[in-house]
Amino acid sequence: MTIAASARFEFRLRPEAKRRIQQAADLVHESTSDFARTAAEERAERVLREHMMATAVPAEFFDELLAALDQPATPNQALQAAAQRARRIVERR
Rank of each mutant, 00 (worst) to 15 (best):
A5Y: 06
A4M: 07
E41T: 05
L66P: 00
E60G: 09
R93H: 09
R85Q: 12
A39N: 02
A73W: 09
Q80R: 09
R12L: 10
I21Y: 02
R12E: 14
Q23L: 07
Q23I: 02
Q84K: 10
V47Y: 08
F61W: 14
L27V: 00
L27D: 03
A36S: 12
A44I: 09
I89C: 02
Q22C: 00
R93A: 09
L48F: 10
A81C: 00
L13Q: 09
R8Q: 11
S31H: 07
L69H: 08
M53S: 11
V57W: 04
S6F: 12
H29P: 03
Q84D: 14
D70R: 12
A56F: 11
D34E: 15
L79T: 15
E30Y: 02
Q80C: 04
L79Q: 15
A56I: 14
M52V: 07
A36R: 01
L13I: 13
F9G: 01
I21E: 00
E30I: 00
T74D: 10
T38M: 11
K18D: 05
P75Y: 10
A24D: 02
A44G: 05
T55R: 15
A39I: 11
D70I: 01
Q22V: 03
L79D: 12
Q80A: 05
I3L: 13
A82Q: 07
A86N: 08
K18A: 08
V47T: 07
L66Q: 11
R12H: 11
Q80L: 13
F11G: 00
H29K: 15
